[in-house]
Design a protein around this nucleic acid. Structure first.
Lengths: 338, 338
DNA sequence: TTGTAAGCGTTATCAT
DNA sequence: ATGATAACGCTTACAA
């Protein structure tokens, strides 16, 4: 049986109130008393019961982190940074992976809310759907705890968004490729999430701004069901066989970009001379392939730091920005020559 | 203010005891009463307070997960599987990332234990040191909650180990390469963790069993400080320049194996004709490179499933195996020709 | 500066 | 089948 505050108070010959004061660093304790109590606490290796404390304080000092799949190379990094940031702010992280199905997500949101967490972080724009009805669960939750969203923008009271401007990053990257003289750029993506749509917008508007208007054929939606990189490569291969030709590929994430590299190797197209490729996320994958992958970095660590900073402020009752938006950056490597 | 069991009991005109019974699915409630209470609960969107429940039950239904770095591609997968398994057994996961420093680890172990978790999972053999003193913190913790260790073997009461026999997997892989006629196999590694040592043992004993005894020169410890793949490749390059020649490389993990591929590409050595390479973990990285990487799969999902199964049994007071050991498997791809 | 006692929201043991 | 009531371990007025 773990010791309680009563055990300590007895051993120290003081009341539990005094022990509690010592525990919480109250001023109103004589120095000698404090020392005595502290010694007993240390000698007996006593730690306060977190649940009891939570009941009194109505706060667990715990933040719920929801993400679709924490083994995803990008989401894993996000979860890691978030956990680190929270930890250094004296908050614990309750992690819950939901998968990508909306109903399942809703279920877990309710589940984790029932744990009386102090706030909820939604990691990844896949938590935002395109219809109002799809997002109702976020609105409902926001009445209970502050909601922090990473990588998506959702306007509602008690909901805070921290994101990278994917549209503009993609606009810049596409523009840069266009300026280098490549006009036939294939855009590949496989998700319909909020940020995915923003990226696509960026591509489209860059194409338009260079006077290219017939690019609908150059937008290739890769079947979401494909998880195998080789299969994705085949998909691109087949898309080309349908009569589409291109000398540049911009992918909505690094995995797809790797598939593009695989495609090129199969067709013996040389990179970057015959085909330039840009990925997104600037993940470890960029340095696993040959040549190494040019990719857009969206400053994940900056985003998570800002998110937690905002969260801590919100919990402290301060006025915090509802929306924090950062810029991405193109990291040039071997798959491009510009 | 969230509703309490008192609010519900008033609205339903019953006592809190009855509400509690309904909540916990007790038999001793008249069907009509149950329905009435359940309706009120639903209408008012009431969820019990987890902390209060935890106080009464002396269990949070929460498991602490400690890992050095949840953004590591392998550890992230482990955490993901564990969280999923725990979730389906009605347990929450409190995640804490510690980094690789021992003192920091100890600190976080104490921190997470104070949260009154029901058990502690240590993910990765890096939690086990080579000296008794280094492991004292595990012994201390085991007096408070059951400790589950993934990927390492630690014998002590209330400590349970689930692991893949890395030694034997590495023995098999090395043997297979030897049998294919490659005798000069370079072994590269960069960690001194428990499982890392086991892998090395496997390599050594396979070499010996084929009558090769002078292989100390073929064991290359890559500086742990190197995190960049290119730098690791340079390290191998330099090691070769020191006068070591080899036609096979076996790496302690996939990242190192990718570095080996990079090295080969630099030196224009063809894979697998001139140089065969085997990695470890069978991660996503195996399919990002060209040719794809042959790697040892240690059945992580099986391990995590077993670990949680054991844990649930332990928490239920059942007698469970102290040690569960599985076999790894060589997954052959393009970096080997056998 | 210190102690007493009420309250936090449950569960579980008694009665009835 | 249902209701009172005592725990559970802590924080925090309020008293002294």
């Amino acid at each position: 049986m773990p010791l309680t505050i009563y055990d300590i108070s007895k051993k120290a010959n003081v009341s539990i109130a005094t022990v509690s004061r010592v525990l919480n660093g109250s001023e109103n304790v004589r120095e000698s008393t404090r020392k005595k109590v502290l010694d007993i606490i240390r000698q007996n290796d006593y730690t306060p019961n977190a649940s009891a404390r939570a009941m009194s304080l109505r706060s667990q000092k715990t933040i719920g982190i929801l993400c679709a799949d924490s083994s995803d190379i990008y989401l894993a990094k996000a979860v890691y940074y978030l956990q680190q940031e929270l930890q250094s702010n004296d908050y614990e992280s309750l992690l819950c992976c939901t998968g990508y199905n909306l109903d399942v997500k809703k279920h877990y949101v309710n589940l984790i809310l029932s744990k009386k967490i102090d706030a909820l972080i939604l990691v990844g724009s896949n938590f935002i759907g395109s219809t109002e009805q799809e997002n109702q669960y976020i609105i409902d939750s926001s009445s209970k705890v502050p909601i922090m969203i990473l990588n998506a923008d959702f306007e509602y009271p008690n909901v805070y968004s921290t994101l990278c401007d994917d549209r503009s990053s993609m606009f810049e990257a596409t523009s840069e490729m266009l300026k280098s003289g490549i006009n036939d750029i294939l855009y590949i993506y496989n998700s319909n999430s909020y940020s995915s749509m923003k990226k696509l917008e960026g591509y489209k508007s860059a194409m338009k701004s260079m006077g290219i208007n017939s690019f609908e054929d150059m937008i290739c939606h890769i079947d979401e069901a494909l998880t195998n990189i080789e299969d994705m490569a085949s998909f691109i291969d087949e898309y080309e066989s349908l009569g589409h030709s291109f000398h540049g590929i911009i992918a909505a994430d690094d995995t797809l970009a790797i598939a593009a590299i695989k495609y090129a190797q199969r067709k013996h197209r040389s990179i970057p001379d015959d085909l330039s490729i840009i990925g997104y996320n600037n993940s470890i994958l960029t340095s696993c392939c040959t040549p190494e992958l040019t990719s857009i970095d969206n400053h994940l660590e900056t985003l998570t730091t800002q998110l937690v900073k905002t969260l801590i402020g919100v919990l402290a009752g301060e006025q915090m920005p509802k929306k924090s938006i950062f810029e991405g950056k193109l990291i040039k490597r071997g798959t491009t020559s510009f």
